[in-house]
Design a protein around this nucleic acid. Structure first.
Lengths: 371, 371
DNA sequence: TTGAAAGCGATACCAG
DNA sequence: CTGGTATCGCTTTCAA
């Protein structure tokens, strides 16, 4: 293995200066197309790769990235933001500023937040595209201005986004189906609730659930999915209707965070104790329901890890000019009463800022890492 | 936030040179105790933290770390090694040499491997302490020579090791118990197999399984654990005995990789189809068993992630002088027939070296990251 | 035991 | 458009 090739090598090979090489490589203005092409070519044949330490050391500029997410109405987005912050601290030392822009409800103010980020000329955006249609033109504009955008939790297709980080919907839905089927021993009628079929993520989970159930437990039956449009009362009402129409229903899979109204509906219909409920995410109100076995299991979407990955991907792209992966899909965790404490403990553990410092240096909490 | 404090700041504050400060900070020889103390003190009051980029850039030295693991008899250790390699490539650019030392069987040759690593004067060791007792004195010696050791998969207590990376045994055992209990609807007699009760990791899983089952499903009964001492024939024989003694056994939880002999024993005893089997790990021979539902679920121990984390922790310590966490425990993944393909796809996917390169630069596969 | 100074490789100027 | 060069903070070597 020869010595690493550096800017000077390619400069000398071409009889130009390192400055020129640098400008060519970063397509800065003021390089003749001719020399630029030659530099690019030579860089490739020499297999040049930049020394990141040197770049970081000499670079004055500091990254500004905007994190556009839902306000902390639920713990999910708080965790995502925490993950982003942790990874930022772990990966780089200073030179990264994170600007949080939050919006109060799904689709409410997210376009404004995105626009604000663009106006502020940030170097990158991490966003939860709750209404991809509305965001579409903004994201395309970002793409045109070559501002990288990473989606978390949900994808926004055809927007030129750099990457998505999300839980694998297929694995989620299929796991829920298999678990449901085996808990019910392959018999019975079950239902699925989701926010809206128009949301890719939910539709995919639902489809995976149905198809897995159909293929692995052919005797079981899945009712038409319930759309709650993220409105609690709607979820409650529609479930009540469902339950009265199907008093023999034996299971429900809630693909969204909105499991509480479903549980309440089942409880009020006095059907809860003979039903197997599988939910999504993990938040305080769900804990007692899991403990009491009202919820058989919940599919934990690892928000902290999603945040970490989103930052990591974005950072790697901005700093190194390359995206490690355009689609990061995580395996969901299954939480049941048995291992519930394990997850709760982690959540609380990382809220604190306990640190173990040996010498002097930065610190990063790795305990829940990859949780 | 003031400008970052650097070596020069400390030096000027003390009226010495940066060289002296550097030597004091790294307790190199040739610094008077007096100045050393002053430097250390000043560094602390000034809250000095080294600039890692600068350090990396100027440092000639390259890290050598030894990875001592079991030979690739099973896919588990291959995956662990792969994870280590990936993280090494992702985290640093060159300057890290990994020396793999493998031993053929549990406890066989691992002391020699460790000794060899010490002799080679590596900067750090990642090891699977299959027989902690035997390794004990070697590890203490490493500790005395301040060579950091990170354990993977199993801990080696009281050895002065820097950190452990492992799957949370409690979460594993409890999840298995809860799943077993709910699949069997809270009734029946079940058994646990393990390698040996002397191995902490196995004993913990077993204990967690028993206690969770007892508390959540008090009507169920757990037989005495079966110790197979990592010998396939022993596992098979003991299971045959178990099955003939308890023809009404309705479930088995295999806490180790040795699930195949258990399944064969159950099959030969013609009890497999009325038993619920929960296994550990995921390897080729297990795949058809999961597909055929001979195995209800397997607890995946995320070897690749364990490897990544082990490297990450070690690297962070060696480079930055501080350990992010002395105990990294990962949540296990539950794999059932429904989500099996998801995991298989990942495994194969990462074996390949598919890369997506945008500009020029290093690449790291993040797809399974945090898998 | 200490100080002074030469790099490390890329960035960002200022001249030409 | 291009070349030259100071600079980033730390490590390391050579003198003193």
């Amino acid at each position: 293995m020869n010595r690493k090739v550096k800017l000077l090598d390619i400069a000398q090979a071409l009889g130009v200066s390192t400055g020129t090489v640098h400008r060519a490589l970063h397509n800065h203005h003021g390089v003749s197309p001719m020399t630029k092409a030659r530099v690019l070519q030579m860089a490739k044949t020499l297999r040049y790769r930049p020394n990141l330490a040197a770049r970081y050391l000499s670079s004055k500029r500091n990254l500004r990235i905007s994190v556009n997410t839902l306000q902390g109405t639920t713990s999910f987005w708080d965790e995502v933001r925490a993950g982003i912050g942790e990874e930022a601290r772990a990966l780089v030392m200073e030179n990264v500023e994170i600007e949080y822009r939050t919006y109060p409800r799904l689709g409410e103010g997210e376009e404004e937040a995105f626009e604000a980020a663009l106006k502020a000329e940030v170097d990158g955006i991490i966003t939860f595209p709750s209404r991809p249609q509305g965001l579409h033109s903004w994201m395309r504009r970002a793409s045109r201005n070559s501002i990288p955008v990473v989606c978390v939790a949900t994808d926004a297709p055809h927007t030129g986004r750099l990457a998505v980080v999300s839980i694998d919907t297929l694995a989620s839905g299929s796991l829920a189906a298999d678990l449901m089927g085996s808990l019910l021993r392959g018999n019975g009628k079950v239902a699925v609730t989701l926010s809206a079929l128009a949301i890719t993520e939910h539709a995919e989970k639902c489809k995976a659930f149905e198809s897995t159930l159909r293929s692995l437990y052919p005797q079981m039956h899945v009712e038409e999915p319930i759309e709650d449009h993220d409105v609690e009362s709607e979820a409650y009402q529609k479930c009540r209707e469902l339950f009265s129409k199907h008093p023999d229903l034996s299971g429900v899979y809630v693909t969204t965070e909105a499991s509480i109204p479903v549980l309440n509906a089942a409880r009020d219909a006095q059907m809860l104790d003979r039903m197997t409920v599988i939910t999504t995410d993990l938040f305080p109100a769900l804990v007692p329901e899991i403990r009491s076995r009202a919820v058989a299991a919940t599919i934990y979407q690892r928000p902290r890890t999603q945040g970490r990955m989103a930052f990591r991907v974005l950072h790697e792209f901005v700093m190194e000019g390359e995206c490690p992966s355009y689609q990061v899909t995580l395996a969901p965790h299954l939480v049941m009463r048995g291992n519930l404490d394990f997850f709760l403990q982690r959540q609380s553990q990382e809220s604190g800022t306990e640190r173990s410092v040996r010498l002097q240096s930065t610190s990063s909490e790795l305990t829940e890492y990859f949780g």
